[in-house]
Design a protein around this nucleic acid. Structure first.
Length: 297
DNA sequence: CTCCAGGTTCCGG
DNA sequence: CCGGAACATGGA
């Protein structure tokens, strides 16, 4: 009965310099679950089991090319690391994030998920994402594990705001619904965005309700593989101010944006994700120490 | 109970 | 372009 979501046979994929767990826990995608020694989740509408044993990366047979694309195993970590600026904060983040890949997620579910992310902790984003899948998605089976696909724009477009609020979206329900309708009606075409250059793609995404610069950049980076995209959230904002604007008090949003686009280079999105993950882990470790102190006695 | 979370939008300087 | 305020919900 244990680990029966693990297929009897697994297919191995060439995946040098790749860390599956680190990648799935870095706040890019929110629906993967631990199962046995690996993780289960969906890629597009296909259920996938993925597991890493040392340097060997294993997935459900038949999903090799899907997984290769999704986990961006074609990216070159060596070239990416070599492109980063050489400063203490960046070098520390690199040590924390070796093997992390920027995923190539399906645009719609990435977009929809990040619309729900505003003013929410990662754990909440995960809860909302799973609730939406369970309520509106299709059930797919993987061994005895039960997974749900992310519902299409057309499916969510015919949901009511009330139904979406039942997934704990709060004020985000109206934005997700509005965006689903614009895409279902082909007012905005997510496939066409693939053919646009970065500024045009960003502007197109920002036409959607609930999509501002930060969410648009997340989609650019985590779905469209625009590796220069540099989403600036509260965490990265703090890092930029405390590390790179130490002397200049009160850096404006425009200053942060201009700096991030020039300083971090052609793989700025990777740099951003490394700095983001390191900042979160550091905070979590500090909280853990505090916990032990206050709990003792 | 208070604080804050991978923001966006609208509004007055 | 900038700072403020409103907007829901639930962990810490």
């Amino acid at each position: 009965m244990s680990n029966s979501s693990v297929p009897a046979r697994l297919a191995s994929i060439e995946a040098p310099e790749f860390d599956l767990e680190l990648t799935l826990r870095s706040g890019q995608a929110f629906h993967w679950s631990k199962s046995g020694e690996g993780y289960v989740g969906t890629i597009e509408n296909t259920p996938v089991y993925a597991e890493q044993r040392e340097a060997v990366f294993l997935v459900t047979p038949g999903t090799e090319s899907l997984a290769h694309h999704y986990f961006a195993l074609d990216h070159s970590p060596a070239a990416i690391l070599a492109s980063f600026p050489n400063d203490p904060a960046m070098n520390t983040a690199i040590e924390y994030c070796r093997g992390m890949r920027i995923l190539r997620q399906p645009p719609w579910e990435c977009l929809a998920t990040f619309i729900t992310s505003s003013m929410k902790q990662v754990a909440h984003i995960r809860q909302m994402s799973l609730a939406i899948r369970k309520k509106f998605g299709q059930r797919v089976q993987l061994g005895d594990a039960e997974l749900f696909t992310y519902p299409s724009p057309a499916r969510l477009a015919k949901a009511t705001e009330e139904e979406l609020r039942e997934c704990k979206l709060g004020y985000r329900a109206k934005n997700l619904l509005g965006t689903a309708r614009l895409i279902a009606d082909n007012v905005v075409n997510l496939d066409r965005i693939k053919t646009m250059d970065d500024p045009a793609a960003l502007a197109e995404l920002c036409k959607l309700p609930g999509v501002g610069e930060k969410v648009a950049n997340c989609v650019m980076l985590f779905a469209y593989g625009r590796l220069r995209a540099f989403p600036i959230d509260v965490w990265i904002g703090r890092v930029l101010r405390e590390i790179y604007f130490k002397r200049k008090r009160n850096a404006t949003p425009k200053q942060l944006r201009d700096f991030s686009q020039t300083y971090f280079g052609n793989y700025g999105g990777y740099a951003q994700q490394y700095l983001f993950h390191h900042a979160r882990m550091k905070k979590r470790n500090e909280a853990g120490k505090q916990e032990k102190h206050t709990r003792r006695k």
